[in-house]
Design a protein around this nucleic acid. Structure first.
Length: 141
DNA sequence: TCATTGACTAAAC
DNA sequence: GGTTTAGCCAATG
């Protein structure tokens, strides 16, 4: 778990942002980082998911945070050294209607132009009437 | 304590 | 097209 209050707040922001990804859509680690105001820390977003609790009594856990909807900027499910985890993630996405293709190298790929979710700010912040934060547009293919 | 690692990314070769 | 580099910083060893 987080060692400092600041880190704990970061975890909280990451999980909250991920919970706003719509069903059947995907986004990238980098975009989550930008949405929560720390565009320099996409790696830490990955760390947060790695440590996503299984304890259902906590406010955020792997049953209410759609971790499977976060992939890398190339549109590929990060293998994180062990392919079985990526396969599990691919299955979870397919279960919600996302088409996941597999390259000849065994990478699980998702088409951002079809399933990508890249808002300029979190819907929850938009509802609060905060000023939009300007980003360069995410490229599709 | 100190050093290394890594569910990442954009920019620079 | 591709590879390398730099930045990030909590977690891990």
């Amino acid at each position: 778990m987080a060692r400092t209050d600041e880190a704990e707040a970061f975890y909280y922001a990451v999980y909250n942002a991920i919970q706003e990804i719509p069903y059947g859509k995907v986004t990238s680690y980098g975009h989550i980082a930008r949405l929560i105001g720390t565009p320099q820390r996409p790696r830490q977003v990955g760390v947060c998911l790695k440590h996503l609790p299984t304890d259902l009594s906590l406010p955020h856990h792997n049953a209410n945070v759609p971790w499977q909807r976060v992939i890398n900027s190339k549109g590929i499910i990060s293998p994180r050294g062990h392919p079985s985890g990526a396969a599990h993630q691919a299955a979870a996405l397919r279960a919600e209607g996302v088409t996941v293709t597999q390259s000849n190298m065994g990478e699980f790929m998702i088409n951002f132009s079809e399933y990508g979710w890249f808002p300029k700010q979190l819907p929850s912040e938009e509802a609060e009437g905060l000023e939009p934060h300007v980003f360069t547009d995410e490229e599709d293919n």
